[in-house]
């Protein structure tokens, strides 16, 4: 069956079972590879997307539950040629080692800055605490979100 979605501002229709994980639809049907599989268990945060502006795991989320709702992936923020200020802040801070966790983290940070443009360090940590990073880049990631907030990252 066809399911209508709004992904990064574009209306799309995908022919999948409604029980298909949203993550699989994004990666395999819409070729949006920036949303990543980490655990499939809603434990690590690499698959985070915004659904109507709220960070949500996509790995175990059935696509049938998000029909018509606005989904934002990392590709909806910026591109390599025109990165979003948050993405640029991560580059400026060199806030990555392997980088696998970053797209999910940036998506969550976007939601944070959208609702609170000047978060405290504690608020940033709280917002990111559902995300795992194995390389130990946490302090730089926090600094990158602080940098983006200071620069007044636009929505």
């Amino acid at each position: 069956m066809a399911i209508d979605l709004v992904v990064n501002g574009q209306r799309v229709s995908v022919a999948v079972e409604p029980t298909t994980p949203l993550l699989d639809v994004l990666r395999n049907h819409l070729d949006l590879k920036g949303t990543r599989y980490g655990c499939g268990l809603e434990q690590c945060g690499t698959c985070m997307v915004l659904i109507d502006g709220v960070p949500e795991y996509s790995c175990a989320r059935e696509v049938g539950t998000v029909g018509g709702r606005a989904i934002t992936t990392i590709e909806g923020l910026g591109t390599p040629d025109r990165p979003h200020p948050l993405q640029q802040a991560f580059i400026d801070e060199q806030a990555g080692q392997c980088g696998y966790c970053l797209s999910g983290i940036i998506v969550t940070a976007k939601a944070l800055l959208d609702r609170n443009p000047s978060p405290s360090r504690t608020q940033i940590i709280e917002a990111l605490d559902n995300h795992l990073c194995r390389c130990g880049t946490h302090t730089r990631i926090i600094a990158a979100v602080e940098r983006a907030a200071k620069a007044g990252a636009p929505a």
Partner: peptide, 12 residues
């Protein structure tokens, strides 16, 4: 890092 914070970048 730029590709890794904007989209496809990994073997996956």
């Amino acid at each position: 890092l730029l590709p890794k914070v904007t989209g496809a970048a990994f073997i996956h």
